[in-house]
């Protein structure tokens, strides 16, 4: 399996990343190398094996749904890189 520049650009877009031309080539090379390497899993016949999804043995861990404020409004905004008195600020979304 090897992938191309178009696929890499689509992946980068999906992951909300961007690369300049030099890094694009480097990432494509790395990605292909890793994909070729993980290819060896195909040698294993897993047609009769169910995927293992959860490792925890806990089932239906429930507690009373009591309302409480763990983080206040002011605390929620504390770490924001840009904010006003009430909201996170971002570049204009609607014209």
């Amino acid at each position: 399996m090897s992938t191309d520049l178009n696929t890499l650009r689509q992946l980068a877009h999906l992951a909300r990343l961007e690369f300049d031309e030099r890094n694009e080539q480097k990432m494509l090379g790395d990605l292909n190398e890793i994909l070729n390497w993980v290819e060896q899993l195909r040698e294993l016949d897993t047609t009769q094996v169910e995927p293992l999804v959860h490792l925890s043995r806990e089932l239906n861990v429930l507690r009373e749904d009591t309302p409480r404020n763990t983080v206040s409004h002011a605390e929620g905004l504390l770490n924001a890189p840009r904010k006003d008195s009430d909201y996170f600020r971002v570049p204009k979304v609607l014209e």
């Binding site: 992951a15 897993t46 995927p51 293992l52």
Partner: peptide, 25 residues
């Protein structure tokens, strides 16, 4: 990037689900 690739619609079964099966083994 690699994680996005193995979770993308075209490759999900061939990579991600496959690895989950091997994990069970």
């Amino acid at each position: 990037l690699l994680g996005t690739f193995v979770l993308s619609a075209d490759y999900y079964d061939a990579y991600y689900t496959k690895a989950q099966r091997v994990r069970r083994l």
